[in-house]
């Protein structure tokens, strides 16, 4: 596990030093600042749209960051040939997978925390109010959603190059984020095989919609009860473990070709 943590530290250092995350934070702050300065038909004191847009951006940017960071790690090790010197150390492939995931997840969660703080600060500056307990719950569930997304990114990247892994991860997680919540509406009129396929998709893909508390935060519905929260966290953890196991199965006997060294 210690070796996994060391691998995670290298992921952290890379993200921090490559500055991608700063660009996203600046983008979020710039967009929120622009929103707060918007002239709303001469009215003042409205803040809900700022928190709403901010949280939407936080979800969007954290998603982009999660897929990019997680899908990049393993293919980059192989492309640069650093995988050979890394695996020559007393480290197992499972430790490598866990380390890469842990690094990607924690760095994305930290960036996400900064996004949430920026939203909270901007809303506070405009004298708005966000229920802190709902906000914290929303952040925690969002982080668990990111755990699944990073695990998916890692799983796809075990057998693909970065571009392919990132594209497939975006399509897969994007469909889960945007399309899945609409399937119960689409499936109403479906019968036979199409209904079965829709049911399989609905029950098979990760449900990010149940980890997305934006509506509760923005419209002051307050936090959910502890048992619901616990069930959702367990669901997210199980999915994360599932995708990490898939990643390990795909990676544990992977052969690295010499051409990757050239």
């Amino acid at each position: 596990m210690t070796k996994g943590l060391i691998i995670a530290v290298t992921v952290w250092l890379k993200v921090i030093r490559k500055k991608d995350v700063y660009v996203l934070l600046i983008l979020l702050s710039a967009l929120l600042s622009w929103l707060t300065t918007m002239n709303i038909f001469g009215l003042g004191g409205t803040t809900r749209y700022v928190s709403d847009t901010g949280l939407l951006l936080a979800w969007f940017l954290a998603w982009i960051l999660a897929v990019n960071v997680s899908a990049r790690e393993l293919p980059e090790e192989e492309n640069r040939g650093t995988i050979f010197s890394l695996l020559a150390k007393p480290i197992t492939r499972a430790e490598l997978i866990i380390g890469k995931w842990l690094g990607a997840w924690t760095v994305v969660c930290t960036a996400n925390a900064v996004f949430y703080l920026a939203i909270w600060a901007i809303v506070a500056v405009k004298s708005g109010y966000i229920d802190p307990s709902a906000m914290i719950q929303g952040f925690v569930l969002h982080c668990f959603a990111l755990a699944i997304i990073t695990a998916i990114g890692i799983a796809f990247s075990t057998r693909m190059n970065f571009d392919a892994a990132a594209t497939i991860s975006f399509v897969f997680t994007g469909a889960s984020l945007l399309l899945l919540p609409r399937i119960p509406e689409f499936a109403v009129k479906e019968k036979g095989l199409r209904a079965v396929v829709m049911s399989l998709i609905y029950h098979g893909l990760p449900h990010f919609d149940i980890l997305d508390m934006r509506q509760r935060i923005v419209h002051d519905y307050g936090p959910v009860d502890v048992s619901t929260m616990a069930a959702l966290v367990i669901y997210a953890m199980l999915l994360t473990v599932f995708f990490l196991v898939i990643a390990w199965l795909a990676y544990r006997k992977k052969l690295f070709s010499r051409s990757e060294l050239m």
Partner: peptide
């Protein structure tokens, strides 16, 4: 809108998270 899978556990959680 009309929805299916109303008895699914995901649907129940969805309705809790999204009033």
């Amino acid at each position: 809108k009309k929805r299916t899978f109303e008895n699914s556990i995901f649907s129940s959680f969805h309705d809790i998270i999204h009033p």
